[in-house]
Structures are given as structure tokens and as C-alpha cells.
Measured scan of single mutants.
Amino acid sequence: TRVETATETAWISLVTALHLVLGLSAVLGLLLLRWQFPAHYRRLRHALW
């Protein structure tokens, strides 16, 4: 049971790290898009909202 718990903890930390990385890359990508294509971003936002 001790090994299982350790594996579970490792998986949880791995998944958390993955989610953090994905979230950060998504935010960075959005910022980059907004910085590179302001007109396109505004049009996209206008279409979405």
C-alpha cells in the first residue's frame, strides 16, 4: 500500500505540473497572438462576444 500511495502522489504531481505547463503555454500563446495580431484579435473577440 505504501508503494501504491507513492505512485499515486507521483501521478498527481505529474498531472498538476502538466496542467500548469499547459495553462501557462495557453496564456503565453494568447498574449503572443494579441501582441502580434491586434486587429485580428479584436475582430476575433468581437465575433466571440
Rank of each mutant, 00 (worst) to 15 (best):
T1I: 11
T1E: 07
T1K: 10
T1D: 05
T1P: 02
T1R: 06
T1H: 09
R2A: 12
R2H: 14
R2G: 08
R2P: 12
V3T: 01
V3E: 01
V3N: 00
V3F: 02
V3Y: 03
V3M: 00
V3I: 13
V3C: 01
E4K: 08
E4F: 10
E4T: 11
E4P: 04
T5K: 01
T5P: 00
T5M: 06
T5D: 01
T5C: 00
A6D: 07
A6E: 05
A6Y: 04
A6S: 14
A6M: 11
A6T: 15
T7W: 13
T7P: 13
T7L: 08
T7N: 07
E8I: 02
E8S: 11
E8L: 03
E8H: 09
E8Y: 05
E8K: 01
T9H: 10
T9C: 06
T9W: 15
A10R: 12
A10M: 11
A10G: 11
W11C: 05
W11I: 10
W11M: 10
W11H: 11
W11Y: 10
W11S: 06
W11P: 04
I12N: 05
I12G: 08
I12Y: 09
I12H: 07
I12C: 09
I12P: 08
S13L: 15
S13F: 15
S13Q: 15
S13E: 06
S13K: 11
S13T: 14
S13V: 15
S13H: 10
L14N: 07
L14P: 05
L14I: 13
L14Y: 10
L14Q: 04
L14W: 08
L14E: 03
L14T: 11
V15T: 07
V15H: 01
V15M: 15
V15K: 07
T16I: 15
T16H: 04
T16W: 07
A17T: 08
A17L: 10
A17H: 02
A17C: 12
L18R: 00
L18Y: 04
L18P: 04
L18A: 06
H19L: 15
H19W: 15
H19P: 13
L20C: 11
L20S: 07
L20K: 01
V21E: 02
V21S: 15
V21D: 05
V21H: 01
V21G: 10
L22F: 11
L22K: 02
G23W: 04
G23T: 11
G23Y: 01
G23V: 15
G23A: 14
L24T: 02
L24S: 07
L24I: 13
L24Y: 02
L24P: 05
L24M: 13
L24A: 09
S25M: 12
S25G: 12
A26H: 00
A26Y: 04
A26N: 00
A26V: 12
V27R: 04
V27A: 10
V27M: 10
V27Y: 05
L28P: 03
L28R: 02
L28G: 11
G29E: 04
G29P: 02
G29V: 14
G29H: 00
G29N: 00
L30A: 11
L30S: 05
L30H: 05
L30C: 14
L31Q: 03
L31P: 03
L31A: 14
L31V: 13
L32Q: 00
L32M: 15
L32F: 11
L32T: 05
L32K: 03
L32A: 14
L32Y: 09
L33G: 02
L33C: 14
L33S: 01
L33D: 01
R34A: 07
R34I: 10
R34F: 06
R34Y: 05
W35Q: 14
W35R: 15
W35N: 12
W35H: 14
W35D: 01
Q36A: 11
Q36F: 07
Q36V: 12
Q36K: 14
Q36R: 15
Q36E: 05
Q36W: 13
F37G: 00
F37W: 10
F37N: 01
F37A: 07
F37E: 02
F37P: 00
P38I: 09
P38A: 12
P38D: 05
P38R: 12
P38M: 13
A39G: 15
A39P: 05
A39W: 11
H40F: 11
H40S: 12
H40A: 14
H40R: 10
H40I: 08
H40P: 07
Y41K: 01
Y41F: 10
Y41Q: 02
R42C: 07
R42Y: 11
R42L: 08
R42T: 09
R42Q: 13
R43V: 06
R43Q: 11
R43D: 05
R43N: 05
L44Y: 05
L44R: 02
L44F: 14
L44W: 07
L44I: 14
R45G: 03
R45Q: 07
R45T: 10
H46C: 14
H46I: 02
H46P: 00
A47F: 09
L48H: 02
L48D: 02
L48F: 04
L48E: 01
L48N: 05
L48A: 05
L48M: 12
L48W: 05
W49E: 00
W49M: 00
W49F: 03
W49V: 03
